[in-house]
Nucleic acid binder design. Structure first.
Lengths: 297, 297
DNA sequence: GCGTGGCATTAAGCCCCTCAA
DNA sequence: TTGAGGGGCTTAATGCCACGC
């Protein structure tokens, strides 16, 4: 996190580049999206802009190409792609959610395929001695989800299962096999996010434990989630404000506040907002959305 | 604009994809950045995320590659690139500003190279008859910047000049010649943004007029500028809030307000904010930044 | 485990050209 | 001027393998 902010400060990116960087950090580092997935998503967003220009410019391939500096041929392919997405529901290469599906779904599939009942052994079907098993069980963290331990082959099978399931949505020609680098990537991501943990044993395949019932439900992750949702929503509000849509409002205040009064000021602001909202709230009327963020400059 | 919102509604992108789309619309359609420039900027943002992971993961190429699903070789190239940017100030491929430099600077160069003094003819050095010239001058819009009209060759030379000047910052191997498609792109962008206008004449080269003293100073464009700046800043504030930085605050309120009271409510909110800011403002203390946006859901 | 090297495929960002409607 | 073809070069995303540490 600190690394990220340092990097941003040193590179001095402009506002758009900053937004891109925050997005990249969230998608790649926090969310665990593949590098290629992020590039694809950015390319798809650009395609939407091109498609939109094409429609506004009387469906003129050459002119659209000139306005955005790409080949008319390419514009045509892009327009076709978006058209198919709109008409036939073909999937565009977007991120689709905060985290990749195969990571989100992973704990559920494990819980389903390798369930564990209280009292039963967590480790089954290995060549370990009972003594070794109980030693491992003893060293397990507390409060584990009700799932058995699995070995590295079973882990691979789980990932393979999820991968093929996530590929089902794609048309046959676009499906990609689960390559070894991709498998390693997913495994490492699961470990990195502390969704699973590896237990190396002296001989034979390493074992894996499921640590959490869902991918990344830490409190920090929840805030990251809110950050992205809020920013998208804020972007949308400002977009309406740019077009002078009725009932939109934008404010930006900078004020110097003594350090020992900041908390007090923010608390009061919170109360003011609530009182204001209470005063005007009237169930069933059109819904007004208000977003606010404050912090030291 | 409407086209854009329609498209977003129909594709139902997730929050991250939404942010990318708003960015793409702003960069490509409003700002006039090249398609390739946007892709490069997104790739650069991803590179920063990868670099940051590499530093956090004890400079392990293989592990960084696995965490983000790219080849260690590629990680190495990326790390080197960012390192050079940090150490030697080498330029990364970023957007760099709301609009491309060559568009922003265009009016200034025109004004400098083809200045016009009140009373003098706007059109010089063509083979037009005095009568034709005065007819054209008569039809010109009012309130033009003090610049002479130029023909298409002179326009091309201006663009060439700007292009080569913008390439000076790049190291020799990376410089790209001004291709014809690129020239056409820049010309079309200038016309599209109503910075210049073409005047076709019956025989000979078409003429061009400079319409504005600067690229895109319309009020709408100013709001777009604020939108991007605000969003980047909001993103930063929330980023601090995610890490529970002291003195950060985030609020999100939804309330139902009767349509005929919305304006009143927003006005009151505005006053509340100002009063609150006045109350706590104390010159010379640390600066607190507060951002707020509101609108119908 | 790691870094490094080679080699292959495919897509796509760029450029240039021609011809018919 | 536009759409529809043709051709080209180059980068880079993604994969595989192999060597030496």
């Amino acid at each position: 996190m600190k690394e990220d902010r340092d990097l941003m400060q040193r590179l001095k990116p402009c506002a758009m580049d900053q937004i891109l960087m925050y997005l990249a950090f969230s998608a790649l580092k926090t969310g665990g999206h593949r590098h290629g997935a992020f590039l694809d998503a950015a390319a798809t967003a650009a395609k939407c802009a091109i498609y939109s220009t094409y429609m506004e410019e009387e469906q003129n391939l050459r002119r659209t190409g000139r306005l955005h500096h790409l080949e008319p041929k390419r514009v045509k392919v892009i327009v076709k792609e978006i058209d198919q997405a709109l008409a036939e529901g073909k999937l565009l290469k977007m991120l689709g959610s905060q985290e990749p599906e195969y990571l989100i779904q992973f704990p559920y599939v494990w819980l389903e395929q390798h369930p564990w009942q209280a009292g039963a052994p967590r480790i089954v079907g290995t060549h370990l001695t009972p003594r070794e098993k109980s030693e491992i069980e003893r060293d397990l963290p507390d409060e584990l989800p009700p799932a058995r331990l699995i070995n590295s082959i079973q882990l691979m099978e789980l990932i393979e299962f999820l991968h093929s399931r996530s590929q089902e949505a794609l048309p046959l020609p676009k499906r990609e096999p689960l390559s070894e680098p991709l498998l390693d990537h997913i495994r490492d991501r699961l470990i990195y996010s502390r969704t699973v943990e590896r237990i190396d044993i002296s001989r034979g395949l390493p074992l894996y434990v499921l640590l959490k019932t869902s991918y990344s439900p830490e409190s920090r992750e929840e805030r990251v989630f809110s950050m992205i949702e809020d920013t998208a929503s804020y972007f949308r509000l400002l977009n309406a404000w740019v077009d002078r849509a009725p009932h939109t409002f934008r404010a930006l205040e900078t004020l110097d506040v003594p350090a020992d009064q900041v908390e007090e000021a923010l608390n009061e602001l919170d109360k003011l907002l609530r009182a204001w909202a209470d005063k005007y709230h009237c169930e069933g009327s059109p819904t007004l959305l208000l977003q606010l963020a404050a912090g030291l400059k």
